[in-house]
């Protein structure tokens, strides 16, 4: 219940209508959107029960490892109602053609593969919010100071997922496990996305805001 309440509203991409469509414009829009979403997601993390009790250093380490997984999971959940399209924002939906134009066809196809899994399972909002918190708590940072505290956080969230499934899906005792088994594809896709945006950063043609840059650098 606390995670459902903590879930942030969607934000708008607001692409500049005066700039003609191009790969640079699309990537600039996405990087700006990601930067603003990251601010929102850091605020969200503070509402995960148990997260604020971690040391500041461990909170930072988990976010530095897991931020892209959180961004992608949010895009995926927003996209579940659509077919072969990714809802980066309510006003910024990418289809195959736009993905091609932005040079994001491979990455967006990987994200769509994840969306397809959740669509098949009928992922619910309750499951989505817990899974997202689990992705953060389980982001496997190498810098954790108090791994027992992080383990306790994982156990609480894992417990919440099991409780939800026991009450809402008693017909499928393996549902929680099935959801957990989607996390490797999320990890793999996030790594791809980080790699892609790191190379865009190296090119230097797309302006990026400071928080997005800071977190990309934490992954480099």
């Amino acid at each position: 219940s606390l995670l459902l309440v903590a879930e942030p509203e969607g934000i708008f991409a607001m692409p500049d209508p005066t700039v003609p469509e191009s790969d640079i414009k699309a990537l600039t829009t996405l990087c700006d959107l990601a930067d603003r979403e990251l601010v929102v997601n850091i605020g969200w993390a503070k509402h995960i029960p148990g997260f604020p009790s971690l040391s500041l250093a461990d909170q930072m380490s988990l976010l530095q490892s897991g931020w892209m997984e959180i961004l992608i999971l949010r895009v995926v959940f927003r996209s579940l109602a659509l077919e072969d399209k990714l809802v980066y924002a309510e006003d910024y939906i990418m289809d195959e053609e736009q993905s091609k134009l932005a040079g994001l066809l491979d990455l967006n196809n990987a994200i769509l593969q994840l969306a397809k899994k959740y669509k098949t399972m009928g992922l619910e909002k309750e499951e989505f919010v817990v899974l997202k918190a689990i992705a953060l708590a389980n982001s496997d940072s190498m810098q954790i100071e108090d791994s027992e505290a992080v383990q306790r956080l994982q156990d609480v969230l894992h417990g919440a997922l099991h409780d939800h499934e026991a009450t809402h899906h008693p017909e499928d005792p393996r549902r929680a496990g099935k959801l957990i088994m989607t996390l490797p594809l999320l990890r793999q896709t996030a790594a791809r996305a980080v790699q892609h945006f790191c190379s865009i950063k190296q090119d230097g043609r797309v302006p990026m805001h400071k928080l997005f840059l800071e977190l990309l650098e934490a992954k480099a």
Binding site: I42, A57, A218
Partner: peptide, 15 residues
């Protein structure tokens, strides 16, 4: 830590 000053600041903010 100096390298991650925005994340640090956002986490410290009470809101």
């Amino acid at each position: 830590k100096e390298k991650h000053k925005i994340l640090h600041r956002l986490l410290q903010n009470s809101t």
